[in-house]
C-alpha cells in the first residue's frame, strides 16, 4: 500500500516540472524515477503511472515533442513560435 496518494504524487511531479521549466525536459519515466528515488519503497511504478494520468488529465501539464516525447507546462506551441 502506498503511503502517498495519487494526487500527492501528481502534485510532486507537477512541482518538479515547474521547478525545472526551461532547464530540463522530463520524460514520464524521468518523473517516475525521481519520485521513486525520493520516496523509496513507499511508491512504485504503478502509483506513478496513475499519478501521471491524473496530472495530464488535470491540464496542469501537457505532452510535447522534440525528437522524443516530454512533459511540460502548457505554453506556446513550440514550433509555431520559432
Amino acid at each position: 500500500m502506498s503511503e502517498l496518494t495519487t494526487d500527492q504524487i501528481a502534485d510532486e511531479m507537477f512541482n518538479l516540472v515547474k521547478e525545472y521549466a526551461g532547464k530540463k525536459r522530463f520524460k514520464a519515466s524521468d518523473l517516475t524515477k525521481e519520485i521513486i528515488a525520493k520516496h523509496g519503497d513507499s511508491v512504485n511504478k504503478k502509483d506513478c503511472k496513475a499519478a501521471l494520468r491524473v496530472l495530464m488529465d488535470s491540464g496542469r501539464c501537457v505532452y510535447g515533442y522534440a525528437g522524443g516525447s516530454f512533459i511540460s507546462l502548457p505554453g506556446e506551441e513550440g514550433a509555431a513560435k520559432q
Binding site: V62, Y65, P74, E77, G78, A80
Partner: peptide, 12 residues
C-alpha cells in the same frame, strides 16, 4: 516545422 506542444487534453 515539426513538433511542439500541440495535442488533445490528456493524450500525448
Amino acid at each position: 516545422k515539426h513538433g511542439g506542444l500541440v495535442g488533445v487534453m490528456g493524450y500525448g
